[in-house]
Every structure is written in structure tokens, then in C-alpha cells.
Design a protein around this nucleic acid. Structure first.
Lengths: 208, 208
DNA sequence: AGGCTTCGATGACATAGGTCATGGGCCAGC
DNA sequence: GCTGGCCCATGACCTATGTCATCGAAGCCT
């Protein structure tokens, strides 16, 4: 369960919620084969810490103020070669999991898991293994890929705030008619009665 | 900073995210004047634990799967007299703070605070004091009360999922015309160009 | 009682939004 | 080099939505 023969695993923790991050740090510090070598409250800070401390494993929150954990993970290999990423998240959307795996993330788990799981996952990915929360994996498989074309996703995202078609058209450099077509197509694919409900559906799946 | 003369403060922890909850429990257990006597993963469970363990202080997450922490806090005094509530939350919306204080909550803080603050707040409220995160308090004051009438808030909430007016009318037992009027009034009060943007604004302020 | 506000409702009107048919340009796979 | 899919655009058509004026009922304050 605990120590191995080798040196201790160097862990970097990134989460914008101080309370959570320091609590997690305290928890991981209790494991005698883990060493929390750095903490960060934002994505940029996480990359800086990774460069400075060359951790073995980076635990990244999915949502941080400046950028999401997945984009941080994607850059991680270039600033700290050999460092593997684990993403933790409050609400795990299927689409996020897919994007995370494409970015080379080696572990993905929701915050609902028990504390012992986290330290086990850290050891697993450090050994070269992978770990994805089974429930999330099942959801991702059943949900499948996004049915939206790239432009449809773009336009739908711009529609998220309730903006009128005119504004979306300007911001996407498209004609209003085209915007309406894309929106209409997206809503149809998502089985939504209108674009606002479509935004909801797409958000739930992590497609936007 | 730490122990007093009296017995240790009995703390109940409620948060649906196991990882966070157990990390927090570990952290609080390090304080020698605090005793974590129970943990709960839902609102209902929290009330049951409160009844069983009669804690001095209950730390409640604002968002839990079955019900929000505020409604739990409101019931708390009837199942565990003498137990005071502290709410912790990821995103603190002004409206939530107001509702929380009305429900008799004695502490309210975002998860971005440092870990030492939490244990200090537990001691403060146990002594009979109150603690509200200063930043959140400032926001709440500047944001002020909801400008929406009760019906407007009802209707706006039903509009949240992108449902058409017809459906809202049925679910609110109103005529479609009235729904549109309420929606129109709400959007005007919130300085939103349409109801969907209005939903966004109201959500951000915690008014729905 | 009279005045005030809120709620609920109706009808009318202008505009925004959803749907469909159609067409041209572009690029990848066969 | 043909074909099919995606992207972008237009125009027409109908429906949903936002806005306004107006009205009646209920509740509240003085």
C-alpha cells in the first residue's frame, strides 16, 4: 500500500481553490512514498512550478481561472519532460475525458472518488500505467464523439451567452443566415428544440 | 492559535466530493482543538449525522446532489439545537450569501480561502461570532437585492433550460402572454437583451 | 374607502429565430 | 477527375419572441 524501494514520487498540485489544494497536500503528505514539491493556483503558475521543480506527477484541476487543466497538461511535456499529468474534476463531462486523453493525460478522475484512490492513481501513472474513472469511461463511450462539425461547435459556443444571431455573425465573421443554418443544424443533431437547449446539451456532454 | 481550556469542538463535514471531504477532514484533524465527529456526502445524510452526533459546528458545501447547503442549514437548528452552520462554496454568488444569512448561517466562505482560515472560522462561530468572506460581502452589498418579483424569478427559472414559452406557461400554470410579459420585465430589469441572457445574469447573481 | 403595487391576462405588432431549398467553392478519398 | 462532405451564403416562409397598451382582481398601506 505505501512505500516502495526507490525514491519518493515528486508531486505537483494545481487547483485554484486554496482550501482544497492545501487539504489535498496535507493528505498526500501523509503517504510516505509521496512528496508534494510544489503547489499552484493557476495554469500559468503550474507550468512555472513544473519547470522549476521537475515533478514526476502533476495533479491538475480541470477548471482553473486562466486556462483549463487539459491545455496545461498538453504543454507540460515540453516544459518538464517525463512528468505525467493526472486531471481531477468536479463534474466530469465525457467530452473532457476524450480531450484529456488526446492531450496525453494519464489519469482522469472525478472529485467524488475516495482519497485513497488518488494516491493509488499517482503511483499507477508514475509506474507508467493509466487510470480513468470507470464510471466516466462508461459515460464517454456511451456518449460517443461530438456530432457537431467544427464550425457548428464554434457558433454554438458563441451562442452560449444568449447573444442574438447578429452578434454571433459578427464575432464569427459569418453572415447571419449562415449562423442560423449552423445553429439549426446543431440543434437538430443534439435533438434540441432550439439553440439555447442545444447549448445546454452540448455543455453537459463537454462538446463545447 | 490552537487549543483552549474547554473540550474540543465537535465538527460535522458535509460535501459530496469524497476527495475534498476526506482531505478537509484530515486537515481539520491536525488541529488539536477540533474533532471531526461525522462526515456526510449529501444533505439528507448531513441531517441524519447531525441528529446522531450533535456536533457543535457543521461545515456544509453549498452544492450537494440532493439539496443545497442553505436548506440543510435552515433545518439544522431543529434536528441539532446549538449546532451552528458554516457554508463553503466554490463560486460564491451574492444572492446565496443573502439567503444563507437569512437561514441563520453563521459563516460563509469560498473555497479559495487558505486552510488556516477555515479552522479559525470554525472557532469563531463556535464562540458565537460570525464570519463572512470580505470579498463576497462586498459583492453582495454592491449587487444588492434581486430586482425580480417572485413570479418573475419563478418564470425565469423555468426558462433556464431553453424551454419555449408554451412549455413554461404550462409548467407555471400561466397563460403564454403572461409568461412573455414576466420574461420581458425580468430581462429589462437585468439589462439583458433577451431572456436567455437574463437567465445568465440572474444565475451569476444567485437570484435564481 | 381610496390609492398604490403586483399579479395575471389579452390582443396587436414588429422583429428575431428556426426551417427549407438551393447553389457555389473547397478539399479528401476513391 | 469524380464524388461526397463540409463550409458559406441567399432568399423565402412561418413561428416564436419581445414589446406595448390596457384591463381586472387581489392585497396592502393610510
Amino acid at each position: 500500500m505505501t512505500a516502495g524501494a526507490g525514491p519518493r514520487i515528486r508531486v505537483l498540485l494545481a487547483d485554484d481553490e486554496n482550501l482544497i489544494r492545501s487539504a489535498l497536500a496535507a493528505l498526500l503528505a501523509l503517504e510516505d512514498d509521496l512528496d508534494v514539491v510544489g503547489q499552484a493556483a493557476s495554469g500559468a503558475e503550474a507550468l512555472a512550478m513544473a519547470r522549476a521543480h521537475t515533478p514526476d506527477v502533476a495533479i491538475l484541476d480541470l477548471q482553473m481561472p486562466d486556462r483549463d487543466g487539459i491545455s496545461v497538461a498538453a504543454e507540460l511535456s515540453s516544459v518538464a519532460p517525463g512528468c505525467v499529468a493526472v486531471i481531477v474534476t468536479g463534474h466530469g463531462r465525457p467530452g473532457h475525458l476524450k480531450r484529456a486523453l488526446e492531450a496525453g493525460v494519464r489519469g482522469f478522475l472525478p472529485k467524488t472518488v475516495s482519497a485513497t484512490v488518488l494516491s493509488e492513481v499517482v503511483r499507477t501513472v508514475h509506474r507508467g500505467g493509466r487510470y480513468v474513472d470507470p464510471e466516466l469511461a462508461a459515460e464517454a463511450i456511451s456518449a460517443g464523439d461530438s456530432p457537431l462539425t467544427p464550425r457548428e461547435a464554434d457558433v454554438l459556443e458563441l451562442a452560449a451567452g444568449g447573444a442574438p444571431v447578429e452578434e454571433i455573425a459578427v464575432r464569427a465573421h459569418l453572415s447571419p443566415g449562415t449562423v442560423r443554418n449552423h445553429l439549426s443544424a446543431a440543434a437538430a443533431k443534439l435533438a434540441a428544440p432550439n439553440r439555447h437547449a442545444a447549448v445546454d446539451v452540448a455543455r453537459r456532454h463537454g462538446w463545447i
